[in-house]
Design a protein around this nucleic acid. Sequence first.
RNA 1: GCGCCCUUAGCUCAACUGGAUAGAGCAUCAGACUUCGGAUCUGAGGGUUGGGGGUUCGACUCCCUCAGGGCGCACCA
Length: 556
Amino acid sequence: MKQYLQDCVKASLTSLGLTQIPVLTFEKPRITGHGDLTTNIAMVMAKSLRMPARQVAQNIVDHLEIDSTLVDRIEIAGSGFINFHFTDEFYRKQLTEILQQGRDFGRLNLGNRKKTQVEFVSANPTGPLTVGHGRGAVYGDTIARLLEWTNYDVTREYYFNNAGRQMRILGDSVRLRYLELLGEKIDFPQEHYQGEYIKDIALHLKERYGHTLRDNPPEGIFKEYAEQEIFDDIKKTLLRLNIKHDVYYNENSLYESGKVNEVISELRKKGLAYDQDGAVWFKASSLGIEKDKVIMKSTGEPTYRLPDIAYHREKFRRGFELMIDVLGADHVATYPDVLAGLNALGYDPSCVKVLIHQFVTIVQDGEVVKMSTRKANFITLDELIDEVDADVVRYFFLMRSIGSHLNFDLKLAKEQSEANPVYYLQYAHARIASIIRHAESLGINPQVVGDLSLPVRRIPQSGTEGKLVEREELELMKMLANFPDVVESCATTYEPHRLAEYLHDVAGCFHKFYHVHRVVTDDQQLTAARIALCLGTKTVLANGFSILGISAPMKM
RNA sequence: GCGCCCUUAGCUCAACUGGAUAGAGCAUCAGACUUCGGAUCUGAGGGUUGGGGGUUCGACUCCCUCAGGGCGCACCA
């Protein structure tokens, strides 16, 4: 439709003898009275034509030739907007389209099966996932769903490191708790992991191995067992949120395969790495970064940049054409080095999209809680899911833009979980399901009844009642027809919160419609048409829910 | 000190990336179908979009500046 109008307006402009045509944009006006699509072209051109914008608009409209079965009114408004009002017939056709496409309605081919990787969560297995991790987890998974929906070939990946200093401390923390369980007096250092889960792991070890581990070093079974147990828990937590990674990529494998050293020697070869003070430096300053960075410490250990560069290079080598990294705001400063490194190695850094989400501030008893896995003052994701529910958690994280620092008050979340916005959407879906059940109980088969050759609008009777009827129905239909546009905008901007808002509006339109009009009545044609409208609404809701990863309940 | 993000209704957040009258939810107050689910619907109050400049037909949106908050600025990840 947009394309069609673009062509029409363009034709009008050429028939006016205008050759220099600026970018023609159409958008959906915020205010419903302003039509279904609007263009500001007249205002954009007014200056260079030295004519009042409204007059330019008038000239354009005068030369427009448009199919009157699609557009029934064109008006000039405001300081020169040209507003197009679509026919009701057009929207009825859209509804037919929705029902025909069913669960595929809204699917788009933006990606053309482009091989894409979404890397997210990537928390090291030193403790349970916290509410803070939740945002990145849900966001990353939803981006993956959006891309799948728009025909990208998506791999979900979790990158982790089980070899660093933190993991050694983890192992030693478990060892000490284990010894404590054996009755030994221990001195538990402050920088060790304070969480109760460490004691649980120690207990499991004791139950399984008794006293036999007394003299084992921290790096051995203590670390390995802890890692395994914690990782299992992380996976379980993610699964509760409907999240499943395809690949778990171990940083350590990059060392074992020599990929890390490879990066250093190649950088050296290109004159982009040099030795100083016993360390190896990356000459980032020659690539537009403020100063050079250490990639290998004088101890011989690499800094995080080096394996990160090697890892991303492997992503390229594995054939990914688009790589999405979902990171928390604490990593903003780190990725430019990695991108510069990739660039230096001859890879196109624009294939890597880094999506930064701001932190979740946890508020408890009116105070901001500083989350720290090591200090064990955190609220786990599991606790949150226990308290509210997975759908609520997902929706909560998705309803806001990732650029905003959002406040999370656990107490409030519990209190408000009954009134949570996600139920507003799901209720609409359940309500439709219920209407369908009701219709079926009266012997109406929605499959048959959904004959779309029937008019979806009652022919206006005399008086205002008929007009009211058409308003809610048309508003709902217009809303539904907009779904593919919303999907596209979310997928291209990586902003799923717009979908959440849109679905909220769809549910709102439906509730309003439902409240004013009866679906199942004695009027067979009207019943058929309204059931079709219900089914269309249900389709859009269900498709949207599946992108957001929340359930579409038939009853609540 | 420097960089990124943020500041919008009492609270939590939107605003289709520069468009027309800045919108939702929660909270508060007042109302609503004898039949399809009241987890719903209707209405009211609530705003100098942190302050000040600028850019233009037009600014919550872009630029400058000031104030406040978050996150970074390692031979930690």
